[in-house]
Nucleic acid binder design. Structure first.
Length: 293
DNA sequence: AAGCGAACCTGGCTGC
DNA sequence: TGCAGCCAGGTTCGCT
């Protein structure tokens, strides 16, 4: 499910409730998600204060006053919801009324401010881990992770350096979290359409032999930033599972130019192409065969 | 070494 | 109505 904009939407929803609160209790309803919870997971969280809630690529990072970081990934189908009663109302925050546990509620955080944060993940491709803050960058989750696409270093020159000499198609290379971290199937398709680049084009063709950017590299860098920022502003994309923490849907699926639009007309002014679907590395790619080159 | 396909797991939709 | 088959926003492993 969630790519960078959806994870950032979740972070923005959780932060006002979680930051500054302490964890009174954690309920674990099963021993694992994609991987086992770390030893003593609930005990190591109990009583800890959440100093801040951050994000790296598609990971949420809760910085604790114990010196550990709670690392969370939503996988394909993970979501958080906030439950509270009226007395626990937190200014400016929307939440669900308290309810019975639902199917696939796997982790429940009871917070000192009266709110409850519930992690639900039907497919269990999500992940939670605890890592000492000092070890975070070197940890298995992040040691090989690529650049942050909304950070300062993403530009045409950086993409050219990353792509130089690569024969893999642009689609596959942009999906590789070791190069640029945070993009997934939707936003790769959308960024390639915005930059008029074919998903099957070899990544190396956006760089000179010296690793300098060709024009398409700059267009692609701009398109990646713009599509992610627009998606965050819209609260992410809701196809099946993604919900904001208040239960509302994101809106960016209404702005898709190509994703899930097979056989529909290309939206580029003056282009008379029809959107096609193909499979690359086992994933659907949507693109316009006329204007994407 | 890079790049591809399969596997992990559940649910929703389509078509017979 | 039922059931088989296919598909899904991610990551990782194992094989060329």
């Amino acid at each position: 499910m969630p790519e960078l904009p959806e994870v950032e939407t979740v972070r923005l929803g959780l932060a006002p409730v979680m930051e500054g609160a302490s964890i009174d209790k954690v309920e674990l309803r099963r021993p694992d998600l994609r991987t086992a919870f770390p030893p003593d997971f609930a005990r190591r969280l109990k009583g800890r204060k959440i100093v801040s809630l951050g994000r790296r690529a598609k990971y949420l990072l809760a910085d604790l006053d114990s010196g550990d970081v709670l690392v969370m990934h939503l996988g394909m189908s993970g979501s958080f919801r906030i439950e509270a009663d009226g007395k626990a109302a937190i200014a400016g925050t929307y939440y669900h009324p308290r309810s019975e546990r639902r199917s696939h509620d796997h982790v429940v955080f009871h917070l000192s401010n009266g709110a409850t944060v519930v992690f639900n993940d039907p497919r269990r491709f999500g992940l939670m881990d605890l890592v000492p803050r000092a070890d975070l960058e070197a940890s298995k989750h992040f040691h090989a992770m690529g650049i942050e696409p909304l950070g300062n270093v993403l530009d045409g020159g950086t993409l050219a350096t990353l792509f130089a000499g690569r024969s893999a198609p642009l689609k596959s290379v942009l999906m590789d979290q070791r190069l640029v971290a945070g993009l997934g199937n939707i936003y790769v398709c959308e960024a390639l359409w915005r930059s008029e680049l074919s998903p099957v084009r070899k990544a190396g063709t956006l760089a000179t032999k010296a690793g300098k950017p060709k024009p398409g590299a700059d267009r692609l860098a701009v398109a990646i930033r713009e599509v992610l920022q627009a998606a965050i502003a819209a609260g992410g994309s809701s196809l099946r599972d993604h919900r904001r923490t208040d239960g509302e849907l994101g809106d960016f699926q209404h702005e898709f130019a190509v994703y899930d639009r097979e056989s529909e007309p290309c939206l580029r002014p003056g282009c008379h192409g029809v959107i096609r679907r193909m499979v690359q590395a086992g994933r659907s790619t949507f693109y316009c065969p006329v204007c994407q080159r």
